[in-house]
């Protein structure tokens, strides 16, 4: 049932998490004035995660030395576009990080907005890579919901974890508690997207009947454990995170989140990796 597409699983989950971190933290910066001082490490972390994801993607290639050619077919290949846009995302956030190191609060806003836009674009293009007309299991809005869900879920929990660690001794607790609120909301939105995605993908699976092999039956036959683990881990992670995020808002002590957020991130990432393995594992192409 589980595929061996480990490189792609790690590439997609890590880069989507990185986009989530950037989108949520930069959005929070724009939304909450003076929150920048409390959100210093998100962009560098996203930068590192993206780099790691790209490295994993290289391990998927049979001839990595030829990867330079992979952006030659932007005209028609979504894969080519994906590689380019993820590369751009990495470049933008790298610039953002360098800019902030040079001058913490000056001139970074356009780069911040660019990184949000490029990041969201990257996730969108990543979904397009899988909308193959010959792979009905993937060729569904469920894929889009799923990828954006991953982005928000893992991005918000990661933001929460980083935020709680870097603000262990923060003075402006008010701003931090608002941050926790944003993370909590985005996590819950992510969870909603995820669930809509799962329901839609079950419908897509059920509609995939390749000459007697129903994909949903295949999942029911061999993948129930994985599906349950995925849902339970993601729900537990988000539940834990939201609960403590709300508590942190109440007590205005974001450091309360640190340990639960670490647990939550582990649960969410593990759940998402299982989910993504299942996503690749349900690959079923029409034809012969």
């Amino acid at each position: 049932m589980f595929s061996s597409e480990w490189s792609l699983v790690l590439f997609t989950v890590l880069t989507q998490a990185a986009v989530g971190i950037v989108v949520i933290s930069e959005f929070t910066r724009l939304l909450l004035k003076n929150s920048g001082a409390h959100l210093k490490w998100q962009a560098p972390a996203a930068c590192a995660l993206t780099a790691l994801g790209l490295l994993f993607s290289l391990t998927h290639l049979g001839t990595p030395l030829h990867s330079v050619f992979t952006i030659l077919n932007l005209g028609s290949s979504w894969l080519s576009r994906e590689i380019l846009v993820v590369g751009c995302f990495f470049a933008v956030i790298l610039l953002l990080v360098l800019q902030r190191r040079k001058a913490p609060e000056k001139g970074a806003t356009p780069l911040a907005i660019a990184s949000i836009v490029v990041g969201l674009g990257a996730v969108f293009i990543m979904t397009r890579v899988y909308l193959l007309p010959t792979v009905p299991v993937w060729n569904s809005i469920a894929t889009t919901f799923g990828f954006f869900g991953t982005m928000l879920l893992s991005g918000s929990v990661a933001c929460g974890l980083i935020g709680s660690l870097e603000n262990r001794s923060a003075k402006n607790a008010e701003s931090c508690s608002s941050m926790a609120g944003v993370f909590c909301v985005s996590a819950l939105v992510g969870l909603a997207l995820k669930f809509i995605g799962i329901v839609l993908s079950m419908i897509a699976l059920n509609n995939t009947d390749n000459y007697g092999m129903n994909a949903l039956h295949m999942v029911a036959d061999k993948g129930v454990d994985g599906l349950v683990a995925w849902i339970v881990m993601v729900c537990a992670g988000i539940g834990l995170f939201s609960w403590f995020a709300l508590k942190a808002m109440g007590t205005k002590q974001i450091k309360l989140i640190a340990s639960p957020a670490l647990c939550a991130l582990a649960l969410v990432l593990a759940g998402e990796i299982i989910g993504r393995l299942m996503f690749y594992g349900t690959y079923m192409r029409i034809g012969i």
């Binding site: 290639l61 049979g62 001839t63 030829h66 050619f69 012969i288």
Partner: peptide
């Protein structure tokens, strides 16, 4: 001289025409 061995063509082709060679990585 260009193939990177990403196997994306293999995913898409409904006739199983492109086939990956482990030995070549292409």
């Amino acid at each position: 001289d260009k193939c990177v061995g990403c196997r994306y063509c293999e995913w898409g082709c409904p006739y199983s025409a492109p086939q990956y060679s482990e030995g070549l990585g292409k």
